[in-house]
């Protein structure tokens, strides 16, 4: 087993016909951490996860998961990974308990330990009162708890969670993440994909994917600190017109309106971005207070995905 990393991927690529869904992605995911995949729809998160757990064959590249070359030695991994698919994939016409019992037998939990393990799992994921309920009748959050329970039933050292919290309310999401941290405390490595910024921020490390490419990678704080853009907050009575003016400038990366304020990303290499914005607005007769603020993860995301579109400058490496 590779002592340093739970997962290594080198030049991982997957093509579907003319489309390159994952494009030369290189990853090194350490043990015992929560590693996030952040990316918009269609950016290749699911495709990457599927290649990492041996469900899809890469078009190019090398993958090693827990020391096994994938997909060649994928069968050796089966007992060591838990996988929560993006789309709910347990049986809707079975009850909660029947689903878990089924998974317990599929993973060959010893008969003597099965009942005990089932009880603790039901309790831990607050599923006791739902044990006999058919899965069709569960809410989104309950289904998600069941899916996580099923994926962790056999105590796998590595968990793949593909957008586990879509269709779940904020409180359930927080509970879910508490569960994830409990799991890492016992040494589990977790790879989780998401498009929620708040979740991405909770990961130990993060990879930002855009149209199949890895555009930024690192701990969230480092990503925010090292962002290749200056973040400006603009307070103005006419945010709409100010926004339109700024968007037309080539050196402005993106402008988002938040109520009466504007949140703008300006390329770091632009000369004195603060002054430039002030001058531009004053010239148009727009009254405004412009300040530089700290970047949040969304800014990192926008800088890494949006900025790269035009000039191809890499956000982070």
């Amino acid at each position: 087993m590779n002592p340093d990393f739970a997962i290594r991927a080198e030049g991982l690529t997957r093509r579907f016909g003319a489309l390159t869904a994952v494009n030369r992605v290189t990853l090194a995911i350490p043990h015992g951490q929560i590693y996030g995949f952040l990316g918009p729809n269609g950016s290749g998160k699911s495709t990457t996860i599927r290649m990492l757990c041996g469900l899809l064959k890469p078009s190019a590249g090398e993958v090693s998961v827990l020391g096994h070359a994938v997909p060649r030695e994928a069968e050796a991994l089966r007992h060591k990974i838990g996988y929560m698919t993006q789309r709910f994939s347990l049986y809707e016409d079975l009850s909660v308990e029947e689903n878990l019992r089924f998974m317990a037998r599929i993973f060959s939990l010893p008969r003597s330990a099965r009942d005990g393990r089932l009880d603790t799992t039901l309790r831990h994921y607050r599923l006791e009162s739902l044990a006999r309920r058919r899965v069709v009748n569960l809410s989104g959050g309950e289904k998600q708890r069941l899916a996580l329970a099923a994926a962790t039933l056999h105590n796998p050292p590595l968990l793949f969670l593909d957008e586990p919290t879509s269709a779940v309310d904020p409180q359930s999401r927080r509970d879910f993440w508490d569960n994830l941290f409990t799991l890492t405390a016992t040494g589990t490595t977790i790879l989780v994909s998401t498009h929620y910024m708040d979740e991405a921020e909770r990961c130990h490390r993060l990879a930002i994917l855009d149209r199949g490419r890895l555009v930024a990678e690192g701990p969230p704080r480092a990503l925010m600190r090292d962002i290749a853009a200056v973040v400006l907050e603009i307070e103005t009575p006419d945010p709409h017109r100010a926004g339109e003016l700024l968007r037309a400038e080539p050196w402005v990366g993106s402008v988002a309106q938040l109520g009466t304020r504007l949140h703008a990303l300006v390329a770091r290499d632009a000369v004195q971005p603060l002054e430039a914005v002030r001058r531009r607005l004053a010239a148009a007769g727009i009254e405004a207070r412009v300040e530089q603020t700290a970047a949040n993860l969304e800014d990192v995301f926008v800088a890494a995905t949006g900025f790269n579109r035009g000039d191809g400058a890499a956000g982070h490496g």
Binding site: L55, R78, I81, Y83, S89, L90, M103, I106
Partner: peptide, 13 residues
């Protein structure tokens, strides 16, 4: 069709 297979084939079955 229901997506169960995607999970099943990552198990030891």
């Amino acid at each position: 069709e229901r997506g169960n297979l995607e999970l099943l084939i990552t198990t030891p079955v």
